[in-house]
Design a protein around this nucleic acid. Sequence first.
DNA 1: ACAACGATACCCT
DNA 2: GGGTATCGTTGTT
Length: 214
Amino acid sequence: MNKDQLENRLPRSFYERSPIVVAQQLLGKSLLRRVRQQWIGGRIVETEAYLAAEDPASHSARGRTPRNASMFGPPGTLYVYTIHAKYCLNAVTEAAGVGSAVLIRALEPIWGIKRMKKNRGVDDLRRLARGPAMLCQALGIDRQQDGIDLVDSDLVAITGSPSEDPSISESLTVTSSPRIGISQATERQLRFFVDANWYVGGRASDHENRPTRP
DNA sequence: ACAACGATACCCT
DNA sequence: GGGTATCGTTGTT
């Protein structure tokens, strides 16, 4: 990963939209983490949308707490939360104070694979970043990065063509399914993933849903 | 102070 | 496909 690609960073306006749109548009974009002089990471291949107050599965549904405070930050804020002694990361969407976000669930590892293997303690490419907590471990992201501004930070960034440029998204077949691991609003199709991508997690039954257009 | 509970991952069959 | 390790956060005594 060289520095030039960072100039392709997504602007705040990208995030200032419905998480349902942003979740789909993030597929194919690059999630990057700086380790010393090097940027490591890969392509986003699986996401989930978490809405604001009307979504009972969302961390923001029962209001602001110390844990979820950054979810109410400006669009483009990084929200990192702890679950089962692990970490997962989201990109905050819509206006500050709303409380919606997109969970990034899987990455196709591309840059700094050696470093990510070391961070994960595994050698299998497929088990490097297939799952939200695996991905954070691979990138070395924890609660210390909670609240970082993805639009501006020199530690974590998301790059790629902006939403209005269809060059990446249109070449991908995006499929939706129910979100993983939730117990409420399980009927909503708010998980999105690149169809048939080798690095997308979940069981075969999760892939029986109709394709959608971003 | 404490008990319950995850937007999980791993190991086992 | 199922059981469980593991720990921060939250809501309740």
